[in-house]
Write a protein that binds this DNA or RNA. Structure first.
Lengths: 136, 136
DNA sequence: TTGCATCCAACTAATTCACTTGGACTACTT
DNA sequence: AAGTAGTCCAAGTGAATTAGTTGGATGCAA
């Protein structure tokens, strides 16, 4: 049970963009966050394809957020790199378990699933940044 | 982000034991839950080492719970097979991240961590069984 | 036209997962 | 005493996933 690198880096990258007043270059994110420039390629691509950031072209180019910081949740970032959270495989369309109907564990896993999703969904980039500022 | 097989099977096995009025053989669990008898070896060993089940020896032998069903939580089962939940590796003793102090994501991952733990901890085997009975 | 910066596909080494194999031990049965 | 059923335990394995790297194509700008 781990959060993978795509999601961790993706979150850090989008916060880096959110905190900057001007468009940010991939190179700058890589340097400030100490992530390999090349590896960041796929992270940026994920965030971009998910419609969370856009590429500002022309002079002073770089990446900016596509939405407001309180319209982007951790779950949005998660979804930029992974399919919908599914802690267990039983009972999805493609892989239904035969004992699904009288399995006492299935309901719990599903519950846990949706609580996780709920927590991630309610935490926005705005909150992440604000909470950190308050502590420092 | 998946719940692994040890934990899923372990939970099913312990419920199987909990629901039985007499001691249960490993073989019976394997059959009822459709889990490979050999693979179940390590699952049973995990539950046993964690002190959740005991081996009833002699005639009519088999496994029984070591505690009451409301004293065993999903988290106990989780811990029988995995170290403490750690969704991200930053800032554990062995692997502290340099940017830990001003990282806006760290606190969130830790929060998520402890919420997960809390949810698993508060769900007991007793509740799992009861909730299922009510539905059926 | 040279150089950034982004875009994109393929490769890889290391690790993890979900088992299987095979054998040792122990208690009970006959 | 021998056989067997059940448990215990270590090692092996094939497939999948992870966390990257490599190398090049494309497109804009000085």
């Amino acid at each position: 049970m781990k959060i993978n690198t795509n999601i961790r880096y993706g979150l850090r990258a989008i916060i880096e963009i959110a905190k900057s007043e001007k468009p940010v270059l991939q190179k700058e994110i890589a340097e400030r966050q100490d992530i390999s420039l090349n590896y960041l390629d796929s992270i940026i691509a994920g965030l971009k394809n998910a419609g969370l950031i856009v590429n500002y072209e022309g002079k002073g180019s770089g990446y900016v957020l596509a939405k407001k910081t309180n319209d982007i949740s951790v779950y949005n970032v998660y979804r930029a790199f992974s399919p919908d959270i599914q802690l267990v495989n039983c009972s999805c369309e493609t892989n239904e378990c035969q004992r699904s109907n009288n399995c006492p564990t299935k309901d719990f896993w599903f519950e846990l699933n949706s609580q996780l999703k709920e927590i991630m969904n309610s935490k926005t980039i705005e909150k992440l940044i604000e909470e950190k500022l308050q502590i420092v």
